[in-house]
């Protein structure tokens, strides 16, 4: 691990100021991903600004949205009675990820900014455009079983490993930021960038910008939701594919549908095309099959991950059937 300085911030303003004043600074949340990557020499910040003790409140705001402080731990979100009652898919996604210990430390903000689990990204002995821009990608023609089938580029085929992010993508969440230039809000779906030819640029965050909160509008009252994750090991493993779905069916017709996929792309993947297929269509197996096909229509398999396409489709169909 490269030497670094450490300071703890007591509020958002001082955190942003500290980061702005310190070249090479990174924000430290729970550290469950950043500290690991620093120990692997993948992340090499010169300074850490600890934001894990910043506001962590979870609750319904005056705007009716669910607000989660960025420093709220995954466990506290999953255990929150309001979350579990009104936004159960958030809790479901969280408890499908990592382990009890990691969820106790990992924060909402950090979860969204966790880096890919691509084995080549993690290994400084391999080439990786994300880690070292321009060095090449060993995954494209290498062992790419866990890699992306949607939205990838010849420069990078890594996936985003978040479970929570997939649920939030389905819920139209917003991410609230603070930075040297002030505060702003971005849609969660716009937070992550696809790799293109700059895979090292993973989000739209400007230098020094900090996630301060995530807010979520209430889902349609009549919608049922589910988060489904497929993996070989029964627990404590990243997804082969995962599906977050909300479905509202009235009189046998899909009134509204939200569908997001995990494990298939560099970002939590909202399957808007599939939602369009679903909306207004009869809630039948045939419709769900068409939606699943649409969701993966643009998918491009690599040598070892082609199975993710039919697997994701199967899970989409069964999840929708379950919710209908």
């Amino acid at each position: 691990m490269k030497p670094f300085t450490y300071q703890r911030a007591d509020d958002v303003a001082s955190a942003v100021a500290a980061a702005a004043a310190t070249p090479g600074a990174a924000y430290l949340g729970g550290g469950t991903n950043l500290v690991d990557l620093m120990r692997q020499n993948v992340e090499r910040p010169a300074a850490l600004v600890d934001v894990s003790r910043l506001p962590a409140r979870i609750g319904i705001g005056t705007d009716g949205r669910l607000w989660m402080g960025a420093a709220a731990t995954n466990t506290d979100v999953a255990a929150d009675p309001v979350v579990r009652r009104d936004f159960p898919i958030i809790a479901e996604a969280i408890v499908n990820g990592a382990s009890g210990q990691i969820r106790n430390t990992a924060t909402v903000g950090g979860n969204l900014l966790q880096r890919t689990r691509c084995l080549y990204f993690y290994d400084t002995g391999a080439r990786c455009n994300k880690r070292e821009p321009g060095s090449g990608c060993d995954a494209v023609d290498g062992h790419n079983r866990m890699h992306a089938v949607l939205g990838a580029s010849p420069e990078c085929v890594a996936t985003n490993p978040s479970d929570l992010g997939v649920a939030l993508a389905a819920l139209d969440a917003r991410v609230h930021l603070a930075g040297p230039a002030g505060g702003r809000t971005v849609e969660l779906l716009d937070l992550h960038r696809l790799p293109g030819d700059t895979p090292h640029v993973e989000t739209v965050l400007a230098p020094g910008e900090l996630i301060t909160a995530v807010s979520v509008p209430p889902p349609p009252a009549a919608a049922r939701s589910a988060y489904r994750k497929v993996r070989e090991r029964a627990s404590y493993a990243f997804a082969l594919v995962s599906v977050a779905a909300l479905l509202e069916v009235r009189d046998g017709v899909v009134a509204s549908a939200r569908l997001a996929l995990g494990g298939v792309a560099a970002k939590p993947w909202r399957a808007a095309v599939a939602e369009a297929v679903l909306t207004g269509a009869p809630a039948t197996r045939a419709t769900f099959d068409r939606a699943a096909a649409a969701a993966l229509a643009d998918a491009r398999p690599l040598a070892h991950n082609g199975f993710k396409i039919p697997l994701a489709q199967r899970v989409i169909v069964s999840t929708l059937e379950e919710l209908s």
Binding site: R8, T32, V35, S52
Partner: peptide
């Protein structure tokens, strides 16, 4: 999980926690 300890009563991984964070 071999490094699991309780911090303020909650189980955490001591290996991914910087000592400074436990202040």
């Amino acid at each position: 999980g071999a490094c699991t300890v309780l911090v303020d009563g909650r189980r955490v991984l001591a290996c991914l926690t910087l000592a400074a964070q436990a202040e």
